[in-house]
Amino acid sequence: MELLIGLFTGIVFGFLLQRAHVLRYDKQLGALRLMDMTIVKFMLAHILVAMVGLYLLSDLGLAKLSLKATVLGANILGGLIFGLGWGLLGYCPGTSLGALGEGRVDALSGILGMLVGAAVFSRSYDWLLTTVYTWGDYGKITLPGVTGLNHWLVIAVLAAVYVLILRFLERKGL
Rank of each mutant, 00 (worst) to 15 (best):
E2P: 13
G14E: 01
L16D: 01
R19E: 04
V22L: 09
R24C: 00
D26C: 04
D26R: 06
Q28T: 00
L32A: 06
L32F: 07
L34P: 00
L34W: 02
M37S: 14
T38Y: 07
V40S: 10
I47C: 02
V49G: 10
A50Y: 10
M51R: 04
V52L: 09
G53T: 01
L56A: 15
S58W: 03
L60D: 08
L67A: 06
N75G: 04
L80T: 02
F82L: 14
L84S: 12
G85M: 06
S96Y: 03
L97I: 11
G98C: 06
G101V: 07
G110D: 08
G113F: 00
G113R: 01
V116R: 07
V120I: 15
R123P: 01
Y125N: 08
D126Q: 09
Y133K: 14
Y133W: 12
Y133N: 15
W135G: 08
W135V: 13
G136W: 04
K140H: 11
P144F: 05
P144C: 02
V146Y: 08
T147F: 08
W152N: 09
W152C: 08
W152I: 02
L153F: 12
V154W: 10
V154E: 04
V157I: 14
L158V: 14
A159C: 11
Y162P: 03
Y162D: 06
L164Y: 12
L166R: 01
R167H: 01
F168E: 13
E170M: 04
